[in-house]
Amino acid sequence: MDTATIVLPPNLLAAAEALAEQLLHAEPIALYYRAQARLDADRHARTLLERFSAAQADLRVRQARGMVTQADVNHLRALQREVQSNRVIVEYAETQQMAIAYLPGVNQEISQMLGVDFASLAGPASC
């Protein structure tokens, strides 16, 4: 079902918007957004990520064609080391994980009150 067509009852809509607003001020999520802003403002870091992503895609294509060379692998590894030692990128990745890890606690608070697991109900149908 397309959730864009669901109209939330006004009280639920207001409560969901209030929760969303508060979540933006939760420490792990605020830190994530600060790290994201730093990454967005850092042209070198963004270019490095783009190069790394392009090199990964290129290697996958070469792998499928059986055309991977040691030079391709060395190039990707060098870029990977550069990504892993970039402070801005590392901070972004770490804070993103912390922000994601924060949400189950919020779900637990909701689910305890409801007596059912909210995220399970809200999740996409499992495979």
Partner: peptide, 12 residues
């Protein structure tokens, strides 16, 4: 934040 989560659960 947890109070906002509880308010949301209450509304649901």
């Amino acid at each position: 934040i947890l109070q906002a989560a509880r308010d949301f659960a209450g509304a649901l």
